[in-house]
Structure formats: structure tokens, C-alpha cells
């Protein structure tokens, strides 16, 4: 079964958000990486790029498919996980840790309240199957 840590917020597009002050760390869930299979390429924005909630900020590719990734919160990208360009497999191995994708300075921190809790996300993925 896919791992769904309690301390994160989740989107219906299978991203997770970890809130650290006014910064949101964003990645894709264990369920998402399982569905994708071996991640071979991750395309990410640049620091300084601005996105509104639900905008696509990049893409993640497996051998077979391309999936867009969407930011669950609005804000300006403060930092990008550059190491994924050479080691995209981190997304598979450690989706909630070394496989994080971007850190965003949130412009509307209240947006995280509308995201799913771990329990809600687990129910959501079960219903999707």
C-alpha cells in the first residue's frame, strides 16, 4: 500500500504539501510515483517563477508516459530540487523526502486548508481505483 504521511496536505492531482512557516514544500505522492513507474525525467520551473494554485509547474516522465504536475498553492518558487535532473529516481525512492520538487513562498497560505488530509487522500485514492 502507498505511504500517506499524516503531517502533509494532499491535492486530488496527487501532489503533497508540507508547510514550513510561509513556505510550502511540494512533491508528488507515493501513490503517484507508483502509478507512474520508473521516473526518468523531471522538468521543473526556475526559482522566482510565480504560479497560482492549480497551475502546472512542470512535468514528470516515466518510460511510458508524461504527467503534468500542478501546484496546490499560489506563490513564488523559492527553491527547486536541482538534484532531480540527474537523479530523477529519487521521486520513486523517497517521494516525501529527497524526491521533493519545489519550495514555494505562499502568497495565500490559507489555501492549504482546502487541501485533503492524509485520511481524506487515502479515501480518495481508493475511490479512484
Amino acid at each position: 500500500m502507498a505511504n500517506v504521511p499524516d503531517n502533509l496536505h494532499y491535492s486530488k492531482d496527487h501532489e503533497w504539501v508540507r508547510v514550513d512557516g510561509d513556505t510550502a514544500v511540494i512533491g508528488i505522492t507515493d501513490h503517484a510515483q507508483e502509478q507512474l513507474g520508473d521516473v526518468v525525467y523531471v522538468e521543473l520551473p526556475k526559482a522566482g517563477d510565480e504560479f497560482a494554485a492549480n497551475d502546472s509547474f512542470g512535468s514528470v516522465e516515466s518510460v511510458k508516459a508524461v504527467s503534468e504536475i500542478f501546484t496546490p498553492v499560489s506563490g513564488k518558487v523559492a527553491e527547486v530540487n536541482q538534484s532531480l535532473s540527474d537523479e530523477p529516481e529519487k521521486v520513486n525512492k523517497d517521494p516525501y523526502g529527497e524526491g521533493w520538487m519545489i519550495k514555494t513562498k505562499m502568497s495565500k497560505p490559507g489555501e492549504v486548508d482546502s487541501l485533503l488530509t492524509a485520511a481524506e487522500y487515502e479515501d480518495f485514492t481508493k475511490a479512484e481505483e
Binding site: 513507474g37 520508473d38 518510460v63 511510458k64
Partner: peptide, 12 residues
């Protein structure tokens, strides 16, 4: 089956 648990990369 599009892939098994080992994954496409390992299978290839």
C-alpha cells in the same frame, strides 16, 4: 500487463 512490480526499466 504493461509492467510487473520490478518496473519497466529493470525488465528492459
Amino acid at each position: 500487463p504493461v509492467q510487473y512490480p520490478a518496473g519497466t526499466m529493470a525488465e528492459h
